[in-house]
Structure formats: C-alpha cells, structure tokens
Design a protein around this nucleic acid. Structure first.
Length: 426
RNA sequence: GUGGGUGUAGCUCAGUUGGUUAGAGCGUCGGACUGUGGCUCCGAAGGUCGCGGGUUCGAGCCCCGUCACCCACCCCA
C-alpha cells in the first residue's frame, strides 16, 4: 500500500463517487417524500455551545458522558460537534420563535453527526443522519404520521419489508414515569445480585436503561421487571392506544417492545425504532420518539415535539445486505472524439453545444488516440460517439457512431445536437 | 477504555519447512487493427512486502516493539 502520510481520521470516511451518489440518492428520496408530508428543510450549525447538548440530551447519557467532541474555541467558549440533531433544531426553533403563539414547525435536515466511539461495522465517529422534527403538536395523529413517513422512506429506497421491523413503546410522561422509575429502581436493588454492575449503577442514574442491557442474565432478570405499559397514567395510555389504532388502520405492522428504552433522556410517551438485518452487531437504521418536555427544558414555553433520525451508512448497509442496487445514471450519453490535432476547437464547441442543449456529453482532455477515446466512450456508457477529424472538418460534418449497433453516418455539424438527441437518446 | 483479527502492485489476494530477479486475477496504458469501442491474443508500467529493531550466511515468512485498519464488548444512527 502506498505509504500515504495522511489518512482520513479514524472513524471517518471519504465518500467516493459511487458512495456519494448513493448519499445523494437517499437525500433526494427523503426530500421528495418529506416535503409531500409538509416538512420543510432546516440546517443548523455542525457545532453548538456544549451546554445545548448537555441540557438537551441529558447528563446521564453515554453520549454526553463520553462520546462528545468538545473543544474550546479561541474565545474560550466550550463548543461541541453535534452528536445528534434534535437538540440543535429545538434550540433553533426556540431562538427564532418558530412555535410562538401556537404555531408549529415541521422540519427535516440531513448531515453529519459526531460521536467519539470505537468504530466498527455500522458505527462511525462521523456518521450521517437524515432527521425530522415536528414541534408544537401533541396529537397522536402526528406520532402516526411521522412513523408512517419513516417506514415509507425505507420502503422507497428499497429496504425489503421482510428484512426490517418497527418496534414501538411508550415511555410515559412526567405524571407516570417518576413513579415507574422508582418501581424499576427498587426492582433492580432487589435483584442486584443477579445483575451486572452497570445495571446496578443504572438504578441510580437511569433505571430504565437496564432494559437495554444485552447481558443475558440482566435480560432474564429484567424480563420480570414491572412494565411501564402497566403503569401508564390514563392520558399516556390513551395516547399510546390511539397511536396504535391509527397505525393499525394505516396497515403499518409493528412490534410492541416494553424493553425499548432509547438512550436519550428527552423522550416521553411514544418511542420507536426501526431495525434491519445486515448491520454487523448493530441493528437500528432509524429511531425516534416524542419529547414533550424538551422545549421547556431549553427555557421555552411548554411545547410538545416529536422526531426521528435515520442513518445513511446503516441504511446503505441494509440495502447492500439485501442485494439492492442504487440506480446509477450513465456518466455521459454522448462522447465527442477527436481524430487528429486540427479538430480540437470544433470538438470542444460541439461538446459545449450538446451540453448547452441538455445532453450529457464528454470529450477527451488527455490527448488520447481515437481508439482510446472510443474505449473510454464505451466504458462510460455513451450511447453515441461523434467523431471529428480532418475529413469532417473539410466538409463541416461529423461521423456519428451508434455504439450499440456500430452504424455510422455523416451529419452536418449544425445538426449534431438534434440527431444525437433522437438517435442516440432514450 | 477492553479483547480478537489483519497489514504483500490502483483493487482483490497467492507466496510452499526462512533460500537468490516477490507472483496471479482485475484495472490502467500500449500493440495486433498507421482515423474506430465491446470479444480474443500479445506486451508494458506499477511493489520501501505497514514501520522500527532483533535472530540468521540469508527474513514477505521467525521474535520483540510500534502504527494503522477491521471486527466485537459498551452504546447507538
């Protein structure tokens, strides 16, 4: 391997054309789909005051505890590269009063997120997410809308439905969750002997996270723990039931999973996660939930919110594992080849004219032989090659070669664009 | 932070119990066809064998160290 001095930093990757095209494809699908659901684009800075994430995501989370890229700028401010999108968007929504006086905001964004973790399959230090945040609406129809939209996205890009599943749960709210937390905490204390250290520690910081433990013993013990489903207050239970009712009516299949406790502190009520095969040890390609207290947490007026994020890399891994190809357009429809020195200017002009006429056209810039130019034309999938040399110059014409049939004909220079568009075209 | 695996041409990889000029396929470039692609044939370019030490007459192969990447734990997109 060439001894290159510089490499992309650990946990980051260069998106070379093949991959970058797949990226654009996902972004385009999301853009089309989400705008049909009434969502508008937003872009926030890649970094924020550190406190935005500490407050928003929660002190006790792994993200804040050990995964943030935090640094001091030259003014001594503590800044952090965004580890997720919700906190930034909520901050922006409040800062610009997007939900003042009962208004609501339906937003989507796409971009890189940063978490300092050990990279592995499906997990990068810089990874890309498409996210959606709907702020200012508390009705269960919104929960269902967002979930349906997420599932439609995965279907639209080609993740086979039999290779993914939707998990659903309710986390309760400030009325029912605290009491439930206590119940789980005391359950953990009672079974401390059979749980891992981490889970016992969780009893204090965030007992619900113990449901997330992958340790076999912990899972067994936690399977017997009280379920929030049975402890929800009337309002939360009704909200959850309504979300399920709407999803049922929409024909969305889901699995209720009482152990689905997402790793960010801000979630209330509805939480969901989409899992897929082919992601290595990972399984989530997207997830989200309601966060009805987050705006207040940031100092805004009480405002409900809901959102999800989905991962570019993981979605692509799922597609790859399922054998789904991202459609790739031909690089050029027409190649304009030069035979001999004197035709250089005419070749350039013909190429330019084709491009101006909306045709994807390419020409040689390396002084290749005609043979080599034909080879290139073939490789990039050109349907036709326009050949211009001394003979053609003399008669102000060009040879147009149909690359699939090999048939050639002489065409006056002025008629090339029209001829190529009809013959070499679709 | 902890564990495991792997580092040989642009890419994917061979490389026998350490032995002399380190190989293949693909790709690239050129030729067979002096202005014509795909198929075929021929040829060429391209390698500090990750890096640094050590053992040895001799190291891509063995030993030590180091770096990088990958995978897994943890957690998440």
């Amino acid at each position: 391997m060439a001894q290159s001095t510089y490499r992309a930093p650990k946990g980051t990757e260069d998106l070379l054309p093949v991959k970058a095209r797949a990226w654009e494809h996902l972004a385009r699908v999301a853009q089309d789909l989400f705008s049909r659901y009434g969502y508008e684009p937003i872009a926030t800075p890649l970094f924020e005051a550190t406190d935005v994430f500490v407050r928003g995501i929660g002190e006790a989370t792994d993200i804040v505890g050990k995964e943030m890229y935090t640094f001091l700028d030259k003014g001594g401010r503590s800044l952090t590269l965004r580890p997720e999108g919700t906190a930034s968007v909520v901050r922006a929504v409040i800062e610009h009063h997007l939900t003042a006086n009962g208004q609501s905001a339906k937003l989507y964004y796409a971009g890189p997120m940063f978490r300092y973790e050990r990279p592995q399959a499906g997990r990068m230090r810089q990874f890309w997410e498409i996210g959606v945040e709907a702020i200012g609406m508390g009705e269960p129809t919104l929960d269902a809308e967002v979930i349906v939209m997420l599932m439609r996205f995965f279907a639209a890009v080609g993740v086979p439905s039999e290779r993914m599943r939707l998990l659903l749960n309710s986390m309760g709210d400030e009325r029912c969750r605290p009491a439930y937390r206590e119940k789980v905490a005391s359950y953990i204390w009672k079974h401390a002997g059979d749980l891992c250290e981490e889970c016992v520690r969780r009893a204090e910081t965030n007992p619900l996270r113990a449901f997330d433990c992958k340790n076999e013993g912990c899972r067994t013990v936690m399977a017997g723990a009280p379920l929030l489903r049975d402890e929800l207050c009337d309002e939360c239970a009704a909200h959850y039931a309504e979300v399920r009712r709407i999803l049922d009516a929409a024909g969305v299949t889901y699995v209720e999973d009482a152990s689905l406790v997402r790793g960010l502190d801000y979630y209330t009520r509805t939480v969901f996660e989409v899992q897929a095969e082919g992601l290595g040890a990972q399984n989530a390609i997207g997830g989200g939930g309601r966060y009805d207290r987050l705006v207040e947490e940031f100092g805004g007026a009480p405002t409900p919110g809901l959102g999800f994020a989905l991962g570019f890399e993981r979605t692509l891994l799922a597609l790859e594992a399922a054998g789904v190809e991202i459609p790739a357009p031909p690089k050029a429809e027409v190649f304009v080849a030069r035979a001999g020195e004197s035709a250089a200017l005419v070749v350039f002009e013909v190429t330019r004219a084709l491009r101006d006429a909306g045709v994807a056209a390419e020409m040689d810039h390396q002084g290749r032989s005609l043979k080599a130019q034909l080879k290139v034309a073939d490789r990039i999938g050109a349907r036709a090659v326009v050949i211009i040399g001394d003979d053609e110059l003399a008669s102000a014409s060009a040879v147009v070669r149909d690359m699939s049939s090999g048939v050639e004909e002489r065409v006056p220079l002025g008629e090339i664009a029209g001829r190529v568009a009809s013959a070499g075209g679709r």
